[in-house]
Structure formats: C-alpha cells, structure tokens
Simulated assay, not measured.
Amino acid sequence: MDIRTSTVFIPGATSGIGLALALRLQAAGSTVVIGGRRTELLEELAAHHGFDTVALDITDPASVTAARDTVLERHPELDTIIAMAGVMAVEDVRDPDFLDGALRVVETNIVGPLRLVAAFIGHLQTRPQATVMTVSSGLAHTPLAVSPTYNGSKAFIHRFSETLRLQLASTSVEVVELVPPAVQTDIMPGQADEPSYLTLDDYADEVMELLGANPHAHEILVERVKFLRFAEVEGRYEAAVAAVNG
C-alpha cells in the first residue's frame, strides 16, 4: 500500500482509529472515501476535511452493495479498502441474553468484513496494485476475559487474513492486517480516558510510520501490541493472559 498515492475506502471511519488513519492518509497524499451509518456525522466530516463520504451499514447486505456501486462510480481508480468497522461488548456467557449481544458482534466484526471483501475483491483484482487491509486485535492472541466474542471475532479476522493472502498470492491484491493494542477510543465505555492505553494519535502516527517504511508488510504491529501478539510463540502466554486480566 502506497500511503502517498492510494485511493482508499474506509468503512467505519467516522471516529476512532478509522478517522485518525483517514486524516493521515489524506495528508500523506491519498484520496480517502469514508463510510458510516451516521449521515449527519459524514456530512460534518466532508465539510471539515473534504472527504468523499458514503452511507453504509455493514450489517445490511443491500447497503454494502449500494455503497460499493457508489464508491466505484465516483472512484473507479479505487485500489484499497480498510475494513475498519467493529464493535466490542462486555459479556458473560452465563447471562440469558448473552447470545443476542454475541451475534451482534459476529455480524459486525466477522460478517461485515466478509461482505466488504466479497463486494470489492472483483474490482480490486483489476487494479495494477491493490490492498485489502483487515483489522484484528492483540486480543486475538491474548484474550480479555470480559469480551469473549470480540476476542474470537478478531481471531477469525487474523486467520482469515492469512488465508486470504494465500488465495490472492497470484493476483495484484496484497492483504495487510492491522493489529491494534488497547488504544484510547470509544469502542468501550471509559476506554478513551484510560491512561494505561496507547493514545489514539500515538497509535495512528506509528501505524503511518510502519506503512511508509514497509508498504508491502503483512502485519502492522506497533511496539505496544507485540506483548500480546507474540505471547504464545515466545512461551509467556499464561503470564500475558494474567497481565491483561489483572
């Protein structure tokens, strides 16, 4: 992925990591299209930052198809999608309502990215160089006890990304997996103000440095996430799990 010249579509870029990367990619020279469900926020971001915007609900198949058609009509040169949208919830499997919340996480975090890939992969293969960026989490490798479905959904994204890369090896499409640690965002109540988490600006800046230094990277791993990402392979899994859940 060339951060200076790409045309990028980022669903889920109205806040958090998605918006932070959208702003930085635009500043680096890329053309950025953002998507989201809140049309009033999309309009505000378009007015303030000059983004092209597309209304999109990744839990709705018709919405994904319509967004794809709109993006490609306006930007036939599109060469990158970043499947940023995701949700996280505190869960207890013993709760009678556990399944309803778990299915919402699965629909957004697993089925949503699958819909996006299915919608855009045909077009991306027509480009001389293209990128699918998925978004997993350090919690795919070292779980947080209170968010079992989120952890599992991100583990799925990790393995799907690696397999997708194998399937697309003979094409022009590269697969890059973004693996965030705990970052100060609003994905969970109170997380944006948690002082032990990486600040959003620091995270986004480090991601851009890594993308710029290695545009063909398979994984984007900031230093903070390596404690989680490599806990098992480095033989310290139990200690890492204890630390994350302490």
Rank of each mutant, 00 (worst) to 15 (best):
Thr53Asn: 01
Ala67Asn: 08
Ala46Gly: 10
Leu21Gly: 01
Val8Cys: 12
Ile34Val: 03
Leu41Lys: 14
His49Pro: 14
Glu40Pro: 08
Ala67Leu: 12
His75Leu: 04
Asp79Trp: 12
Ala62Asp: 15
Asp52Thr: 14
Gly16Leu: 10
Ile34Leu: 01
Thr14Asn: 03
His48Thr: 10
His75Ala: 03
Gly29Ser: 06
Val8Trp: 14
Thr59Tyr: 08
Ile10Lys: 04
Ala85Arg: 03
Ala20Ser: 08
Ile81Val: 15
Ala28His: 02
Ala85Asp: 08
Leu23Trp: 11
Leu56Trp: 01
Ala55Asn: 07
Thr70Asn: 06
Met84Gln: 11
Thr7Glu: 11
Thr31Gly: 03
Pro11Cys: 06
Leu56Pro: 00
Arg38Gln: 06
Thr59Asn: 15
Thr80Arg: 11
Asp57Ser: 05
Leu25Gly: 00
Val71Ala: 07
Leu41Arg: 15
Ala55His: 12
Thr7Asn: 06
Pro76Asp: 03
Glu44Asn: 13
Ala55Glu: 15
Ala46Pro: 05
Leu45Ile: 13
Ile17Ser: 03
Gly16Glu: 04
Val64Ile: 08
Gly18Phe: 09
Thr65Leu: 11
Val64Gly: 06
Glu77Met: 02
Arg24Lys: 13
Ala46Met: 09
Gly29Cys: 04
Val32Thr: 14
Asp69Gln: 10
Arg38Gly: 02
Glu73Cys: 06
Glu43His: 13
Ser6Ala: 09
Leu78Arg: 10
Arg37Thr: 00
Thr70Arg: 11
Glu73His: 12
Ala20Thr: 07
Glu77Arg: 10
Ala22Ser: 01
Asp79Arg: 10
Thr39Cys: 09
Ser15His: 11
Glu40Gly: 05
Ile10Gln: 05
Ser30Glu: 05
Arg37Pro: 00
Glu77Gln: 15
Thr31Val: 11
Ile34Gly: 00
Leu41Trp: 00
Leu41Ile: 15
Leu19Gly: 04
Thr53Cys: 04
Met84Arg: 09
Ile82Val: 15
Thr7Phe: 01
Leu72Val: 03
Glu77Cys: 09
Gly12His: 12
Phe51Trp: 08
Thr53Gln: 02
Glu77Phe: 04
Leu56Glu: 01
Gly12Tyr: 02
Thr70Val: 12
Ala85Gly: 07
Arg74Pro: 07
Pro61Phe: 05
His48Met: 02
Ser63Cys: 04
Asp79His: 09
Val33Gln: 05
Glu77Asp: 14
Leu56Thr: 06
Gly36Val: 04
Ile58His: 09
Leu42Glu: 04
Pro11Ile: 08
Val33Trp: 00
Asp60Arg: 02
Asp69Ala: 12
Asp52Gln: 11
Asp60Trp: 07
Leu78Gly: 04
Asp60Ala: 08
Met84Cys: 14
Ile34Trp: 00
Pro11Asp: 05
Ala27Gln: 12
Leu72Lys: 01
Ala83Asp: 07
Ala67Val: 13
Leu23Glu: 13
Glu40Arg: 06
Val8Thr: 15
His48Gln: 14
Met84Leu: 03
Ser15Ile: 07
Arg38Tyr: 02
Leu21Asn: 01
Ala62Glu: 13
Ile34Lys: 03
His75Met: 05
Leu72Ser: 00
Gly16Met: 08
Thr31His: 05
Val32Lys: 10
Leu78Thr: 09
